[in-house]
């Protein structure tokens, strides 16, 4: 999400050369903490503010406001020759935590599963762990199987999934390409299987998607309001596509 904010800030500063927008990374928690302590004007977050954080902000005399500025859908991809094209969240959790080791167990070919994951510094890695792997809770927190290959970029996952017929990986849906096949995901076996597209992510039907949010301390005014208006404008929303997220409008 840092890339997205950076792209917005750069485009906006071209139009408003007198205002300087500084973007800093560090994760959603770091941003919200900085907002509450008053060291930034806007916090970008890929999760909603917790009750604790809201209470803390109120204690500081703030009334935090939330904007849904973009959406992110995480696609699960396999090699195009793989016949397994539908998975439930629970199956995904078993797959990535190493309990399902052969594609045969999911109705595919007899081949050992090759897991592709992002490195732990990736927000996508953390999101996948907290929202997909957490579906199984039998003994302690679910972890990625230690055998999972941790690749340094989404592009590396796309490349490996394109060349390895037994691979399964995940990445922000902007990386989807004809050499990878996206798996349709269902929340439970009773729910419909949904493919990741801009429409299904926007409607909330696709199960592994999340809103990207902006928080301000109180009702925005001046340059902050102008920046938010730009983010929500057609031009600002178009920038979202260039960094592989889904516009809200």
């Amino acid at each position: 999400m840092v890339n997205l904010c950076q792209a917005w800030a750069e485009a906006w500063m071209v139009q408003h050369p007198k205002v300087n927008v500084a973007v800093t990374g560090g994760g959603s928690g770091a941003g919200l903490a900085a907002l509450i302590s008053g060291t930034c004007d806007l916090a970008a977050s890929s999760r909603t503010m917790s009750q604790k954080e809201i209470a803390l902000a109120r204690a500081h005399g703030q009334e935090p406001q939330e904007w849904k500025v973009a959406l992110d859908g995480i696609a699960v991809v396999v090699h195009p020759s793989n016949s397994v094209r539908q998975l439930t969240i629970e199956q995904l959790a078993h797959l990535f935590s190493g309990k399902i080791r052969n594609w045969k167990e999911l109705g595919g070919e007899h081949a050992q599963v090759v897991l592709l994951s992002r490195e732990v510094n990736s927000g996508t890695h953390v999101y996948f762990k907290e929202h997909v792997l957490s579906a199984i809770k039998d003994n302690g927190p679910a972890e990625f199987a230690p055998e999972a290959l941790l690749l340094p970029s989404s592009q590396a996952i796309a490349d490996e999934a394109a060349s390895n017929s037994a691979a399964v990986g995940y990445y922000g849906m902007g990386y989807l390409n004809p050499k990878n096949a996206a798996v349709a995901i269902a929340k439970t076996p009773a729910d419909p299987y949904i493919s990741p597209t801009e429409e299904t992510v926007r409607s909330g039907a696709y199960p592994i998607s999340r809103p990207l949010l902006f928080y301000s301390r109180s009702a925005p005014h001046g340059a902050i309001k102008a920046f938010l208006d730009f983010v929500m404008s057609p031009e600002g929303q178009e920038i979202i596509r260039t960094v592989d997220f889904v516009p809200v409008r």
Partner: peptide
């Protein structure tokens, strides 16, 4: 090394 060894901590 990071690019070619797969980086699985086993």
């Amino acid at each position: 090394v990071m690019m070619v060894t797969g980086n699985a901590a086993v």
